[in-house]
Amino acid sequence: MHIQTIGQGHPIVMLHGWGVNSAVFEPLHQMLSQYCVYYVDLPGFGDSPALDGDIDTWVDHIVEKTPENAIWAGWSLGGLVATRAAIRYPKHIKALLTIASSPCFMAREDEGWPGISPQVLHQFGEQLNQDLSKMIERFLAIQAMGSETAKQDIKQLRDLVMAKSLPQASALQQGLTMLKEVDLRPQLGTLDLPWLRVWGRLDGLVSRRVQPLMPPANDQTEDLILAKASHAPFFSHKQAFSDGVLSWLNKIS
């Protein structure tokens, strides 16, 4: 597994989302310069080889390669992986930061749970076998929908992501399966650690209706809602994102 370690200080493990790689976090390098950050390429993405298995296989592998007492931060699918790690390894992880992420990404209409429609996830699966690079570009465009700086955000995302190899089709399929099938909602009540949840109100992938359905904020759990941000708030609203996250990090580390 490829992990780029930058800086010194308390460890932070950074996990990217589906279809991209750890290069998307490059805009955060300066912001997190007071920490020792482990920028992970998830299995089959960026410079990491693919790994057979499910989300728990990924979690186990990342836990083996990163230090104890780290803060785990995950964007989108990476947030799902980080949350699963916090549930399975409560003594290993100091705190949790989820960015534009959901404990259950697929919509469950019978339960009134907002999410990505099964049809959209199916379309991405179909395109994996057709034109991989075109599918990745389409997905990157969705990341910034609704943002005031959408064109700029998409170009920056694309340039960073394409600096590394395209993800392996098998890893993309694994990730899609996780987005379709993993549902951590019943286990959220077991989490007993500082948790910051960052949301973009204009997010086209994680609906604004998810946040009110989450366990309520308390002395351990906080919500940071960026009113004009979409799915990549650390791109489109870097200052507001940095201010909120650094304030939280200063309180817990």
Rank of each mutant, 00 (worst) to 15 (best):
G189I: 10
P118A: 00
S101F: 06
A232Q: 07
I87K: 07
K65S: 13
W248E: 01
G74I: 01
L132G: 00
K228Q: 15
R209P: 05
A217L: 08
S76A: 06
Q30A: 14
S165T: 12
L121K: 05
M178V: 12
G146N: 06
V81P: 02
P49K: 11
D192R: 14
F105R: 02
V20N: 06
L191Y: 08
K91R: 15
H61Q: 13
L160E: 01
P167E: 00
L157Q: 11
S101Q: 08
K164T: 00
E148Y: 12
V206L: 00
Y35I: 04
T177K: 12
Y89I: 01
D52P: 10
A100D: 10
Q127V: 03
F234G: 00
S48P: 06
K228T: 14
K94A: 09
L249A: 02
L249E: 00
P216H: 12
G78D: 01
V206I: 11
V40Q: 03
D41T: 02
T66A: 02
E137D: 15
S165E: 13
G78A: 04
S101P: 05
D47L: 14
A23S: 15
G7N: 05
L226G: 01
K155A: 15
P103A: 04
T83F: 07
K228C: 10
L121Y: 07
Q168W: 09
A171T: 06
A144W: 02
Q220M: 12
P212Y: 06
T66P: 02
M106A: 13
R201M: 14
F105L: 09
R108H: 12
L77D: 02
V40G: 03
V20Q: 10
K238V: 08
W72M: 07
S230D: 08
S22N: 11
P118Q: 07
W199K: 12
Q30G: 14
G79R: 02
L196W: 06
A85W: 01
V13Q: 01
E26Q: 15
W248R: 06
G115V: 03
F139K: 03
C104P: 07
M31C: 11
T66C: 08
A229Q: 06
L191K: 05
P118H: 09
W18A: 01
L205T: 02
I93V: 09
D47V: 05
A217D: 13
K155L: 14
M14Q: 07
L140H: 09
D153V: 07
R84T: 09
G74M: 03
G78Q: 04
G200T: 03
F25R: 05
D131N: 13
Y38H: 11
Q220H: 12
R209H: 15
Q119K: 15
P114D: 04
G53F: 04
H237Y: 10
Q34N: 15
K228S: 14
A217R: 12
F45H: 13
